[in-house]
Simulated assay, not measured.
Amino acid sequence: MRKNSAMGLAAAAAAAAVVCAGTPAFAATWTVTPGGAVTGTAGTTTLKDIDTGAQLTCSSSTTNATVQGGSGLSGAAIATVTSATFSNCRGPLGIRFTMNTDDVSYQLNADSYAAGVTSGTLNNITATLSGPFCSATVGGPASGTPGSISGTYTNSTHTLAVSGGNLHIWNVSGCFGLLHSGDAVSYIASYVLSPGLTITSP
């Protein structure tokens, strides 16, 4: 069973090629090769309610993104995630869930670089979860706002690993008391990118 989303439930996603920083000055210059269209594929993808320990686990997820290529890049919106798909998602008590987002456009902003690893955040994340007797939305620290997740892209393995950030769950309906509106949640996944990118910064 495949579900469109972007959380990245990054994203959920997630999947472009270089990660990012949320608010910064973008003083550094970046070089990305080759740039263009990129697909990221992850195995187990997890969204966990940090307060209750309840989690939604998908057997795999896939994202598509467009990445800037060339040199002298600012790092701002260096990649844009345009879609995300989640497969075989189960939540608390084994309930099957779907994860959906509309108008996916998650911005990846490059932040810092060291020893072949780029760090930063993936911004503008929202998602909707739905299953039998349980539904909720995912976003930022205030209801109705988008959230962000942190990540690292490693040149040698072509892997974008995402975790942390400021995601929270909202508008919980049902869910057997295992999810609570306002709880912080974590999103964890590692996306192998194809084609692989090389990202550097002085």
Score class of each variant (00 low, 15 high):
86 F>H: 14
52 T>L: 05
138 V>M: 03
83 S>I: 04
119 S>P: 01
196 G>H: 01
111 D>W: 01
29 T>H: 12
52 T>Q: 05
75 G>K: 08
173 S>V: 08
166 N>A: 04
69 G>K: 04
111 D>L: 01
57 T>G: 02
130 S>T: 15
142 A>F: 15
95 I>C: 06
26 F>C: 06
11 A>C: 10
169 I>H: 08
3 K>N: 14
10 A>G: 15
5 S>W: 11
57 T>H: 02
178 L>W: 03
73 L>I: 11
128 T>E: 10
200 T>K: 00
3 K>E: 15
119 S>K: 14
25 A>Y: 14
93 L>C: 03
183 D>E: 09
201 S>D: 00
52 T>E: 11
133 F>Q: 13
28 A>S: 06
153 Y>L: 05
96 R>N: 15
167 L>V: 07
131 G>Q: 05
202 P>W: 02
165 G>K: 06
148 S>P: 01
157 T>H: 04
185 V>S: 05
177 G>V: 04
169 I>K: 08
195 P>A: 07
4 N>C: 03
10 A>I: 12
125 I>S: 12
132 P>I: 00
46 T>Y: 01
2 R>P: 11
155 N>I: 11
69 G>V: 03
143 S>E: 08
43 G>N: 05
135 S>T: 13
88 N>P: 09
50 I>C: 03
128 T>G: 05
46 T>K: 11
155 N>W: 12
179 L>M: 14
174 G>V: 07
130 S>V: 10
188 I>C: 05
125 I>F: 11
30 W>M: 03
123 N>P: 03
43 G>K: 01
150 S>G: 13
4 N>M: 08
152 T>Y: 02
51 D>V: 14
59 S>V: 08
94 G>Y: 02
36 G>K: 13
113 Y>A: 00
2 R>K: 06
70 G>D: 05
33 T>G: 04
70 G>Y: 03
178 L>S: 06
167 L>W: 05
164 G>M: 08
18 V>C: 12
106 Y>L: 10
113 Y>M: 00
86 F>M: 07
11 A>H: 14
114 A>G: 00
196 G>C: 04
142 A>M: 12
146 P>Q: 12
145 T>Q: 14
156 S>N: 11
98 T>C: 05
55 Q>F: 08
53 G>A: 08
159 T>Y: 11
173 S>T: 09
4 N>S: 15
95 I>H: 13
105 S>Y: 08
124 N>F: 09
95 I>E: 14
95 I>P: 11
9 L>S: 15
1 M>W: 10
28 A>P: 00
177 G>Y: 10
178 L>V: 04
196 G>P: 01
88 N>F: 12
149 I>V: 15
189 A>H: 06
191 Y>N: 06
177 G>S: 11
160 L>F: 09
92 P>H: 11
3 K>C: 13
173 S>W: 00
154 T>M: 00
71 S>L: 09
